[in-house]
Amino acid sequence: MRQAMVYAILLLLMYIPPYTMLKASSPLALLLYWTALGIAGLAYAWVETRGWGKSG
């Protein structure tokens, strides 16, 4: 459930700020913002899979 929550929050962050507080921001700012969320999603996947294949 924690994993689902993390990705749900990341997805909400993909939608809500760009259509509210970042609505008038520059293309570069939005590119960096969305890319940062992509990096966060990837980093979390990296952490969550650390234990895979190391037991059982």
């Binding site: 994993q3 689902a4 993390v6 990705y7 749900a8 990341l10 997805l11 993909m14 939608y15 760009p18 293309p27 939005l30 590119l31 969305w34 890319t35 969320l37 992509g38 999603g41 990837l42 979390y44 996947a45 969550e48 899979t49």
Partner: peptide, 22 residues
């Protein structure tokens, strides 16, 4: 259409990573 295209494609990537992790 501008940078919205990045958001469109990264929504796919993040949701896919989430589904794969789960």
């Amino acid at each position: 259409t501008g940078v919205g295209a990045l958001g469109f494609e990264l929504v796919y990537l993040i949701s896919t990573l989430g589904l794969l992790i789960i």
